[in-house]
Nucleic acid binder design. Structure first.
Length: 280
DNA sequence: TGCCAGGCTTCAC
DNA sequence: GTGAAGCATGGC
């Protein structure tokens, strides 16, 4: 039996280069959680979505075809040709070729810019499991309730909700010294000085400048927000893992010029390979 | 138990 | 412009 999947409320999809497990483990999203052997649950855009793997590349989604086409197809970036990106890696780069093959199926999600800003403000000097815990605490403490087939899950808090939570409320969710960063960001949105949606219209340089002006946002966090929240796939976040890989395999200098325009996708392959595969 | 985490701000120099 | 200390708290 299909359980949470009802015949009139599910979509069967079959896409190449799409692997939900790798995406869930790729460090770009924190609310896509494995809920069974072949099942994942995603909370995003005020909705709960269930995803079940049938076989490689083939999945069923717990939503109507209309919802799939209007929200999730874009969310999972299913219309981009990731094979074409991987094809541009020179065969001579054995490390990157292996990383791309290992990471096949990862896509850069189109996530909510506000959620990405707050999530990656939180991410600094936290482990990925700790980020996940913190995001869930924020959602269940301050976010709207979502009825997920009888079970209650929580939407990511809006700027208004975080503002009303206050620094103390945010602190109670294990945000630590980052709590004022989150609170300030929420305040700026409420005052109109920061408009995450409007920034979708900005070019890369303008967007980055605005992000860097926020307290708690540096080079790395800005690049994560650009890549995962604004789908600027040329953004190239460099963290401790990336530095480790670049030092080990490129003598400290990565040939960015080869990947102009989609360096962020290459970055994601290196990051995922470096973090999850021990044999390199 | 102690160490480290998808870094940033602040303050010397 | 570069370098180094300090940072709250959870995971392992």
């Amino acid at each position: 039996m299909l359980g949470t999947f009802k015949e009139n409320l599910m979509v069967r999809v079959d896409f190449p280069c799409f692997d939900i497990q790798k995406i869930a483990e790729s460090g770009q999203c924190f609310r896509l959680v494995r809920s069974g052997q072949d099942d994942w649950t995603l909370t995003a855009f005020g909705k709960a979505l269930h995803i079940r793997k049938i076989k490689n590349g083939e999945y069923i989604f717990s939503c109507t075809k209309r919802e799939f086409n209007s929200i999730w197809k874009n969310y999972f970036d299913l219309e981009s040709d990731y094979g074409a990106y991987a094809d541009q890696i020179p065969k001579s780069d054995r490390f990157l070729s292996a990383a791309a093959e290992y990471s096949e199926g990862i896509r850069i999600l189109n996530q909510d810019p506000w959620e990405m800003l707050i999530t990656f403000l939180l991410s600094q000097r936290k482990s990925i499991p700790a980020i996940r815990t913190c995001v869930e605490k924020l959602a269940s403490s301050f976010g709207n309730e979502i009825n997920d087939d009888g079970k209650t899950v929580y939407a990511f808090p809006t700027p208004e909700q975080l503002y009303h939570a206050g620094v103390d409320g945010i602190l109670s969710c294990s945000a630590g010294y980052r709590a004022p960063y989150l609170y300030e960001a929420a305040s700026l949105v409420l005052s109109g000085e920061l408009d995450p949606e409007y920034l979708k219209n900005s070019d890369d340089a303008e967007l980055k400048e605005k992000l860097l002006s926020l307290r708690g946002v540096g080079e790395k966090v800005a690049n994560c927000v650009m890549l995962f929240g604004y789908h600027r796939i040329n953004a190239f976040p460099v963290d401790v893992w990336m530095n480790r890989m670049i030092d080990r395999h490129y003598n400290g200098s990565f040939p960015m010029d080869l990947y102009r325009g989609f360096a962020g996708i290459i970055q994601q392959y290196i990051f995922y390979y470096g973090r999850t595969y021990s044999g390199h």
